[in-house]
Nucleic acid binder design. Structure first.
Length: 552
DNA sequence: TCGTGTCGCGCC
DNA sequence: AAAGGGCGCGACACGA
């Protein structure tokens, strides 16, 4: 059963697809939805973020939905639905949040979204019909259908995680900051341990007023002191021997902690013992989630994770998909050798055992290089070796790169396609072949082509890995709901954090073992959903802990 | 004083 | 070990 949920004339309308519309007041909505949930409908709505936070706040969960906006973005852009009416349609309010990535001509004037478009009820119903038509008309309707279901399930997970929040001990975070930086200082002042390091740094550089937070100023001061760095990046500075380098690196580390996850972050992001990150499903072109709102959820530094502590009587179950992207590549390409290398727990160790490279570090560097398109350094040098050992896997990323260099689109396992390069890119490619082309034109065009190729090379792997993670989460969400047996979201095991290939579940201690099993099962099922019976394993490292810092 | 661009760095 | 993909954010620089 599908029920459309939409707003009209300031009111709310429920439109069952096989029944009569029904007007509902704002106040009655949670009760009505809760009652209808007993029939396990799939709610069809414009945007999960418009509906679900309010329902959760009223104590109501839904099992299934269709997020038309997220689905529209995928269908609009996918090579698998290129012949659909949605793909052919002009930009509309359905493209609102994704205009930057889906515009057919990204460099052309952007659609004017200042105009508020009120969605008529039939728009929701009509859009859903167009989407169903696009899926049915695709040569890969099963994969695409799975992708859209997973994307919508992800939107529910995101809303639920934001609602529940990540358990956060502000007192422990404060103690941690004090340990690194010294007691909290007045606004505009540096805490004393940071000042002390700055003092040493200024002395070493004989620059008593240096502000190391300013890269140009710092570069100048380094130059005066005889340090010929060409940037102030830490990894660049590490190669230099000079007495100022150690305090400088220490200063940078501490200053970073203070500005990114210091007391100000704590004040603005943690309340009532919870951090409520704002996830943006589909926020990255590859289909990965993004985060927004200042919390920086997807950049949560390892240093502060010890402040994430389970409630008394509860545990955190932390799960990490091991070497996810190389395993995805092995599965995408059907590379038997790489599948075998990953048949143990550690894919990189398996690569070493196969004799392709000498050390685990080399295996990792080589694989990352293959997926990112490294050309120089050790990573670049290992590429031919890797290509001999795993020809199918390397051929897949090489072909993706060549496609990008030609300006073509590449597509993930389930059907998310890369954006087309912009007008400027295409112009510079055609300039390189024009009559007035210079060697400089040609060289710039080659550079841009290779750059876009590195993007498409990575897109297929990163995007397919994001699809695996979505299926993992969606499977786990169902399993946890089953474990809860009707308990409210935050009274039983529930997801509280997600970071690309890592999930954290907060649960009563006596549920921890069942949660661990559910996580492993959900991962295995995700592998089968994407790749059927291919012999590629997706092991997860699972740890039940009291605080996130203890995990790995 | 504001908005925009760049740098540097945290995460995967 | 090296600087190849994807992000968001804070601080600074700069011009309007």
């Amino acid at each position: 059963m599908h029920i459309a949920l939409l707003r009209r004339d300031g009111g709310i309308v429920l439109q069952p697809f096989d029944g009569e519309p029904r007007a509902v007041s704002e106040a009655d909505l949670p009760g009505v939805v809760a009652e209808l949930e007993l029939q396990h409908p799939r709610w069809v709505w414009d945007d999960t973020t418009h509906w679900y936070p309010g329902l959760l706040a009223s104590g109501v969960r839904v099992e299934r939905c269709v997020d038309l906006r997220l689905s529209h973005a995928i269908i609009r852009n996918s090579a698998l639905t290129a012949g659909s009416r949605i793909a052919a349609s002009s930009l509309s309010s359905w493209d609102r949040a994704t205009v930057g990535t889906v515009a057919a001509e990204p460099d052309d004037a952007l659609f004017d979204f200042d105009v508020q478009v009120e969605l008529e009820p039939e728009d929701v119903v009509a859009e859903f019909a167009l989407q169903q038509e696009a899926i049915a008309g695709s040569a890969e309707s099963a994969r695409l259908g799975l992708l859209l279901a997973a994307e919508s399930a992800g939107s529910l997970v995101a809303a639920e995680m934001q609602f529940a929040g990540l358990p956060w001990r502000a007192d422990l975070h404060d103690a941690l900051l004090e340990n690194y930086l010294g007691p909290r200082a007045e606004p505009g002042e540096r805490p004393n341990k940071l000042s002390a390091v700055l003092h040493v740094l200024r002395a070493e550089l004989e620059s008593p007023n240096l502000n190391p937070d300013s890269p140009p100023e710092l570069l100048k001061a380094l130059g005066v002191a005889g340090v010929m760095a060409k940037s102030t990046r830490s990894w660049e500075l590490k190669k230099i021997t000079h007495p100022a380098i150690a305090p400088l690196l220490e200063y940078k580390k501490l200053a970073r902690l203070l500005s990114a996850n210091g007391w100000h972050w704590l004040d603005t992001n943690v309340s009532n013992g919870r951090f409520h990150p704002e996830y943006v499903p589909g926020g990255v072109v590859t289909g990965r989630w993004a985060s927004t709102g200042g919390g920086g959820a997807l950049q949560l530094p390892k240093k502060v994770r010890s402040a994430v502590v389970a409630d008394p009587g509860w545990k955190l179950v932390v799960a990490d998909a091991s070497q996810l992207e190389p395993r995805i590549l092995a599965a995408l390409s059907g590379d038997r050798g790489m599948a075998e290398a990953g048949a143990g727990q550690d894919l990189y160790a398996g690569i070493v055992a196969s004799g392709a490279v000498a050390t685990r570090d080399q295996a990792k560097v080589a694989m990352l290089g293959a997926m990112y398109g490294a050309t120089t350094g050790e990573s670049g040098r290992l590429m031919p070796t890797l290509a001999r050992a795993y020809p199918a896997a390397i051929a897949l990323v090489e072909e993706a790169a060549r496609a990008g260099e030609r300006g073509e689109v590449v597509t993930t396992r389930l059907g998310r396609s890369s954006p087309r390069p912009g007008a400027a890119w295409r112009q510079s490619q055609s300039d390189a072949y024009g009559e007035n082309s210079t060697e400089e034109h040609a060289s710039r065009a080659r550079g841009q082509a290779r750059s876009w190729g590195r993007f498409t090379r990575n897109f297929v792997v990163q995007g397919s890995a994001a699809e695996w993670a979505l299926c993992w989460m969606a499977n786990l969400r169902n399993a946890l709901a089953g474990l809860g047996g009707g308990a409210w979201l935050t009274d039983s095991a529930h997801m509280v954090f997600f970071m690309h290939d890592e999930i954290v579940v907060h649960c009563p201690t006596d549920q921890a073992a069942a949660v661990e099993n559910a996580i492993r099962q959900a991962a295995a099922d995700a592998g089968r959903l994407l790749f059927g019976q291919l012999p590629v394993e997706f092991p997860v490292t699972v740890a039940t802990v009291d605080d996130y810092g203890q995990a790995k």
